[in-house]
Design a protein around this nucleic acid. Structure first.
Lengths: 328, 328
DNA sequence: CTGAAAGCGCTTACAG
DNA sequence: CTGAAAGCGCTTACAG
């Protein structure tokens, strides 16, 4: 493939003129226009965005850092992002942090070195290191999923969502409610959702047993393991709130395997509105976080930040919706 | 953030020396080394990959074109790709074709204009236009999922997989077997899997009723609709093979809703090894296409092509595995 | 061991 | 309406 210079020579014009033609900037004579077009068609010339970026100082690419590249949550988020970004001519450069805080920072730098116009970070923590790095980077960054001060932010009311879900359980007559959480290194999922659970119980003057509180990692299997432990309690709970659908589903699988009926013997609720929650039997009561919508909003925020040239530390709260299944 | 020139000035060396330091190419004196390091640390300087690419003619990014950004298949593929690509210092530039053949070609060009080192295309068709465009592009491209001549290719034996699955059904005593397919514009899923079904039936001398052959799109809902139509047949089938898990699951949902038991009254099989297939009740018998592995293989192929500088038209067949569920 | 200079493929004032 | 020239931030022979 030729360069702009070669195209210019073949069309017997200067490369400046070809550039004008390409970008529709400035006048290009009818004759010149025709010759250029012809050469481009014949050669299949495509301008190098890379070289262009070097001059124009914008690459039209947005870096996206995901905690895990292949979760439902991530793919929905990316879909939302792509939906609005593609329309504006932006492409997505993907990076996988693998749930590691150091990798998040490493990728922030890597993306910066690629001269991306902005970065969307789906974060798993919100440590001081992260915040410092974002400041230092000096390009638009929007953080999704964790609250980070002084940074454009797309967040969910994790605390309220968890509290609402537990109250939903209580409203269905449950008093002994178990909890399956995750590591408290994750402020949003680990800390806030647990706090919501505790608060709901307390507000309704319900007892909390240590043995009803379990922890898993982000998969089905660990939900089952946690549930098995919980069923060893002196008085097992009649309902369980798990902080993710997968955890809830693992827990359900375990109680099914020991012959209990859901929801008659024990009820379950999760968070995430996973496709699984919908098609499992019984379907799982869960919270829809509208990840795709959060992607759209994040894309809007980054576009705004790029245009205005500054990180207005705007926080956008995504609405969550309770989806009633047959598990309660 | 400074440029290399500014770093050079601050460290009282030339930019050539800074470059040597950065890339570990050529000698850099101990003193100079120290001063440069200091400046870099103080300023947080990160070299521009973009400018670098312009000189070195490689960007270390691989374009990935996906039919749909948020399907399980796509995310597994990307995970496999990222696993090996990241290790080699490559990043992934994502593009979403939205199942449209024109968009596939458009993105091929778009990625080329970004000077990507190679492109992985998860294709939905294999038309002549696509092939021509790939030739024309003149950069390494590997196509996943559809067979395209003269191009590195990662494919599955769709025909055999479908045939094996239908035979599995037959081996379980079924003779009246229905089929839910997709549009035959998709050579792999639409044509080959159907052919496998027809061939299996024929080889075992089993009758095929027109009314047992239905078509859906790639979602659960259309599987249910197709199944409803199929149950209108004079003699309904005792087993159904659907070309995707989602189609199969939709179909299962429909027969459950009219009170039939699975697999006693009617059996089901799908393809895809989706997470859903595993956790649905009853679990679905399906084919594991090992998408993540196919991603790894595709990444290997593109790396090879980049190194060798040519598209050796190598075809790699990914093994598929039958996963027995309780739906048969 | 190090620097000056050219060049990668573009765009953009400036001049005509 | 169009071209010559400078410059974006790097790397890389070449010379010393």
């Amino acid at each position: 493939m030729p360069t702009i210079k070669e195209v210019a020579k073949m069309a017997e014009v200067s490369s400046a003129t070809v550039s004008r033609f390409l970008n529709n900037s400035g006048y290009v004579g009818e004759e010149a226009r025709k010759r250029i077009l012809k050469v481009i068609e014949e050669t299949g010339y495509v301008p190098s965005e890379n070289a262009k970026s070097l001059r124009t100082k914008q690459t039209k690419v947005i870096g996206v850092i995901l905690p895990k590249i292949s979760t439902e949550t991530s793919s929905r988020l990316v879909r939302g992002l792509d939906e609005v970004l593609a329309k504006e001519g932006y492409q997505i450069l993907l990076a996988n942090s693998g749930l590691s805080a150091e990798k998040e920072i490493e990728h922030l730098r890597l993306l910066k070195s690629r001269d991306v116009d902005g970065i969307i970070l789906s974060a798993t923590t919100n440590g001081a290191g992260l915040k410092a790095e974002i400041q230092r980077l000096d390009i638009p960054v929007v953080v999704v999923g964790q609250e980070v001060d002084d940074t454009p932010n797309v967040i969910f009311d994790e605390y309220q969502a968890a509290k609402d879900m537990v109250k939903h359980l209580i409203d269905h007559g449950h008093e002994r409610i178990g909890f399956i959480g995750v590591s408290e290194e994750d402020p949003a999922v680990g800390v806030l959702r647990k706090k919501g659970y505790l608060q709901a119980m307390q507000e309704r003057n319900l007892p909390i047993e240590e043995s009803w509180i379990e922890k898993g990692i982000f998969d089905v299997e660990s939900g089952a393991v946690a549930m098995e432990r919980m069923m060893g309690a002196a008085i097992p709970p009649t309902a369980v709130f798990a902080v993710t659908d997968r955890l809830a589903i693992g827990a359900m699988n375990y109680v099914k395997s020991i012959g209990l009926r859901i929801p008659e013997d024990i009820a379950f609720a999760g968070i995430g509105a996973s496709e699984l929650s919908r098609y499992i039997t019984p379907s799982l009561t869960t919270m829809d976080y509208q990840n795709k919508e959060s992607g759209r909003v994040a894309a809007g925020l980054i576009l705004e930040a790029i245009k205005s040239g500054g990180n207005s530390p705007e926080k956008r709260l995504i609405n969550v919706r309770l989806l009633q299944g047959d598990s309660v």
